[in-house]
Simulated scan of single mutants.
Amino acid sequence: MSQIAAILVFALALLTMVVAMLLWTRARTRERQEEVLLRLRAGADAAGLAGIGGEVQRVENPLLRWVCHLVWRTGADTDPGMIARWLIAFVLLVPVAIVLMGWLAGLVAILIVLTITWAVLARQAARRRAQIIDQLPDFLESVSRVLSAGNSLEESLIASAQEAHDPLRGLFVSVGRQIRLGASVDAVLAEMAEIHRLRDLQVMAMAATINRRYGGSLRDIFRSLVQAIRSRDMAARELRALTAETRFSAVVLAVIPVGLMLYILARNPEYYSDMWADSGGRMMLIGSALMQVAGVVVIWRMIAGVQDGEA
């Protein structure tokens, strides 16, 4: 009974801490919004607006920046403060899981939740990235047509974004919004290329930088980029066809050991419990689990390497 009371007190303390962090973060956000409104009322110019926007989106913490980029790649327009609150809440729940489930089961449960969350986000981000790359040639041709009418690159990107389809439309609408606030088009494109891991946007950013400093024809660069994207897409389709059997074999090799373990666990649950009770069996189970994880990581990196070659 005392142990249950201690767990309840511990959980209540963690809940109080989470509420305090949320209130503190909300107060800081409201204070920052009030500062922005005061600057707007004072007549801040476009450059000042761009600086404010940069402060809101700039993330200094490496872990928080990695998580923010992973979430933003899925198309979610989530504020970094909200993502930071999610991370704080998850970290505070880790001791609760360890206390309630034990250190081994708690750590395993936490790793499973992290792995599933990362896999879902990464899958959604990869799907959205493939759609953006597929829509990019038509978008660049539209930008070239608007450029031919005598418009600037900024105006061409904003006008073409209105006619594009999602998810490319949402991406370049965000680019246009930042450009209107005073940010340079090459800096915005470079930032989007880093967040979404799109090398074609990096090429567009370099082309915009060269055009701004030394001049030149952006239409010729975009025309060459469209041809390169379409040629790469054809090569990627051929590569996927040639490596389909290899990729299927890799997936089978990764799934069979896990399926066999689950089958043995269902048919004879005492098998693994007896091994875990013995020191040698425990080392064998831990070693096999580590080798299985390493094998899955290697196989995933091989498949990811093929997919990176496509993009």
Rank of each mutant, 00 (worst) to 15 (best):
V188K: 03
V188G: 00
L189P: 01
L189D: 00
L189V: 05
A190M: 10
E191S: 06
E191D: 07
M192Y: 10
A193Y: 04
I195C: 11
I195G: 07
H196I: 10
H196F: 08
H196V: 09
H196A: 05
R197Q: 10
R197F: 06
L198N: 06
L198C: 08
L198I: 15
D200S: 12
D200L: 12
L201C: 03
L201D: 01
L201Q: 01
V203G: 03
V203R: 07
V203K: 06
M204T: 15
A205F: 07
A205V: 13
A207H: 13
A208V: 10
I210N: 06
R212V: 15
G215N: 04
G216C: 05
S217D: 14
L218F: 01
L218I: 08
L218H: 01
R219A: 04
R219H: 02
R219Q: 02
D220M: 02
D220R: 06
I221P: 00
R223G: 00
S224L: 03
S224D: 03
L225E: 00
V226M: 00
Q227C: 07
Q227K: 10
I229V: 02
I229F: 01
R230N: 04
R230C: 01
R230L: 07
R230G: 01
S231L: 04
R232T: 01
D233Q: 10
D233R: 10
D233Y: 07
A236S: 10
R237V: 09
L239F: 03
L239M: 09
L239K: 09
R240G: 02
R240D: 04
A241R: 12
L242W: 09
L242R: 13
A244Q: 13
A244D: 11
E245N: 03
T246W: 05
S249G: 14
S249C: 05
A250M: 12
V251A: 08
V252Y: 04
V252S: 05
V252M: 06
V252P: 02
L253I: 11
I256T: 11
I256Q: 01
I256K: 04
I256D: 07
I256S: 03
P257H: 03
V258F: 14
L260M: 15
M261H: 02
M261C: 10
M261N: 11
M261P: 06
L262A: 14
L262E: 13
